[in-house]
């Protein structure tokens, strides 16, 4: 059996999410090939070749793949997929954009957000905002799926010595064009990979207060910052910080929810965190039901006190 893993990258560095996908691929078992489709992405291919457990790296280096346009990358992946039994990618916006297109080109059904590998064709995935876990069995010739990174421990990024092979094939559908990108800069750890996450909700009151109150706490803990949809919709913080069913799914060692009531959609994004702390003025907040520790109080007083005592 052989597995094709689509690398997540920005043409310069290999995104850590790929290491979690390789871990899921190892659970399935078989030779693991990583495809790096990009432009000027040799460094990414070299990094992928060092990943533990990877036996081959394919590098498709062409301007058509520079911005991971689904129309082009999916056509390439679908072509290569004929030689594999599984095609996997991370459950990121990139993976979710490309893989269903690949599946339809192959005329197979697809599995989104794999959280456990039961066998080579049977997997678990959350449905209904994580309120139910479905076990699904695929009888398709090729199993296409995205992997929820937080459900698998990343493999080592060093230790492998795979060969890098160039793929000459160029697929340019000519129906889409990259125009611009606006990436939010942050000095803090990446949300989905962070060991500690500090999140704020509507209760923080304003964008200014979000930073006044939560920045010192995140700094002190070396934590990534997140938010509930309410905080994003109110314009407190940009939307890529949203944790939840429709935002990012995180599972850090410690998740501190500040001023977040705990709607079903938010819980879907964080309830697999190892330890959850809720700081809320409402004793009845639903977040308390999933919290390991909750403190009822005014976040404007409690959080600064917490910062001084850590």
């Amino acid at each position: 059996m052989s597995i094709l893993v689509i690398a997540e990258h920005d043409n310069k560095t290999l995104n850590g999410a790929t290491l979690n996908v390789v871990a899921a691929a190892q659970k399935i078992g078989g030779d693991i090939t990583v495809l790096v489709a990009g432009a000027g992405a040799q460094a990414v291919a070299d990094a992928a070749a060092k990943v533990a457990g990877v036996s081959k790296v394919l590098l498709a280096d062409n301007a058509a793949y520079a911005n991971q346009l689904a129309e082009n990358v999916a056509a390439l992946v679908a072509d290569l997929a004929k030689n594999y039994k599984h095609v996997l990618a991370a459950s990121t916006t990139t993976g979710k954009n490309i893989l269903p297109r690949v599946a339809a080109l192959l005329d197979v059904s697809m599995i989104t957000d794999i959280i456990a590998v039961e066998s080579a064709n049977t997997f678990k995935r959350p449905i209904y905002a994580g309120n139910a876990i479905a076990t699904v069995q695929s009888d398709e010739a090729v199993v296409v799926g995205t992997v929820r990174g937080t459900a698998f421990d990343a493999v080592a990024s060093e230790g492998g010595s795979a060969a890098v092979e160039a793929v000459a094939e160029v697929k340019d559908a000519g129906i889409s064009k990259f125009v611009a990108e606006e990436i939010v800069k942050s000095e803090r750890p990446e949300l989905t990979a962070a060991r500690i996450v500090v999140s704020g909700g509507r209760g923080v009151g304003s964008g200014e207060n979000y930073h006044t109150v939560l920045d010192p706490l995140a700094d002190k803990l070396g934590a990534a910052q997140g938010a509930s949809r309410a905080a994003v919709d109110a314009g407190f913080v940009p939307n890529d910080m949203q944790v939840g069913q429709t935002g990012k799914i995180v599972a850090p060692d410690l998740y501190i929810a500040v001023g977040i009531s705990g709607a079903i959609q938010h819980l879907a994004g964080m309830k697999d965190s190892k330890v959850i702390v809720a700081i809320n003025k409402d004793e009845e907040a639903p977040i308390n039901a999933v919290a390991d520790y909750w403190l009822v109080g005014d976040l404007n007083a409690v959080v600064p006190e917490l910062v001084t005592k850590l």
Binding site: N67, L69, T92, T93, T94, I175, S176, K177, F178, V179, A180, E181, E182, I183, V184, T192, P238, N239, D240, K248
Partner: peptide
């Protein structure tokens, strides 16, 4: 809406 921010494409 992409993971790091926003991306604009023309189709």
């Amino acid at each position: 809406e992409i993971d790091g921010g926003l991306q604009t494409v023309e189709l």
